[in-house]
């Protein structure tokens, strides 16, 4: 990075540290924070969508849809995350490759399964083995997002299902009295009102999701915890920057990162709660109504 870094063994003090903290592994460490934030930014809305569909399906009047919704939430919530991450992702990956194999290599006669091996034709590999490493990483990252979304979607489905039932029945009856169909009432009355009941549960899920990212490494995605462990471990003079076991400093750094991140989340969630409570038939909604300056209701 800096010009004087060409011979690290001749450096000491602040200069050594500035070179050390800007070497290749550290840059990869810093960029892994971006990976984690990107994962959260994509996973959270996706998991919420899965959860919404699951919850809507669970309270559907169509029986097969209801069964599907209930099975999804019950099964995924019952399986430990780590099992899900080890088993499901490999199954998902192999399912994609199997489908591509059927489509792309009709003349292939060697068996796909040979003992523990899974051998599809080279054209069906996802990504192709000749693809640059970046594509392999992008693919693993996508698998990670889908898996996180399915797991957290199941929990979100349960939270939203409960929130939908918490909306006062009188609200729905009033909607019916105004002549709304069931669908209209769902869209106009139930959904806008349920969020305030869902928020405490969803905010818990968000906090757990933030801290679940080390599971990424099971999928070959190098996250911040992996790099902290890798870089912090003691390094002999085979490395340009030898040092003893410094994992405590790296993990302390992560601790600060996570604390700041969860603190920001809490502030944002508190504001969101206040916003969603406005005009609601809840204690918080009532408090806001009384606190507001007198005048025509907004």
């Amino acid at each position: 990075m800096f010009e004087y870094c060409s011979d690290p063994s001749a450096l000491d003090g602040a200069r050594w540290l500035s070179c050390y903290l800007t070497n290749g592994v550290h840059l990869r460490f810093y960029s892994s924070f971006g990976t984690v934030l990107l994962l959260l930014a994509i996973t959270a809305p996706l998991a919420l969508a899965f959860g919404f569909l699951g919850a809507a399906a669970s309270r559907s009047s169509v029986a097969p849809l209801r069964w599907a919704g209930k099975t999804y939430t019950a099964m995924v919530r019952g399986v430990p995350d780590i099992v899900f991450f080890l088993f499901f992702v490999i199954a998902l990956d192999q399912a994609f490759e199997w489908m591509r194999h059927q489509a792309l290599c009709p003349g292939w006669d060697a068996p796909i399964r040979q003992g523990a091996e899974f051998n599809v034709c080279p054209e069906a590999k996802l990504p192709r083995s000749s693809a640059p490493q970046a594509w392999h990483e992008a693919y693993n990252f996508s698998l990670a997002i889908v898996t996180f979304a399915i797991v957290f979607g199941a929990f979100a489905a349960n939270v939203l299902y409960g929130a939908m039932r918490a909306v006062p029945r009188a609200q729905m009856e009033t909607a019916a009295a105004y002549g709304m169909t069931e669908r209209q009432a769902f869209r106009r009355i139930l959904v806008p009102q349920m969020w305030v009941y869902a928020l405490p549960g969803l905010s818990n899920l968000w906090m757990i999701l933030i801290k679940a990212t080390p599971l990424l490494f099971l999928l070959g995605v190098e996250d911040i915890v992996y790099w902290a462990r890798e870089i912090g471990g003691s390094k002999t003079s085979a490395f340009s920057y030898p040092h003893p076991d410094w994992r405590i400093w790296y993990f302390s750094g992560l601790l600060v990162f996570y604390l700041i991140f969860t603190k920001i989340s809490e502030i944002v969630l508190a504001q969101l709660t206040a916003r969603l409570s406005a005009g609601q038939a809840t204690a918080e909604g009532e408090r806001l109504r009384r606190a507001a300056p007198a005048g025509p209701a907004a």
Binding site: L46, P127, S130, P132, W135, Y139, S142, V146
Partner: peptide
């Protein structure tokens, strides 16, 4: 899901 499909499609294009 969309990202996954995009990544997969792009990977296929890039490698052919």
């Amino acid at each position: 899901m969309k990202t996954l499909l995009l990544a997969a499609a792009a990977a296929t294009l890039a490698t052919s």
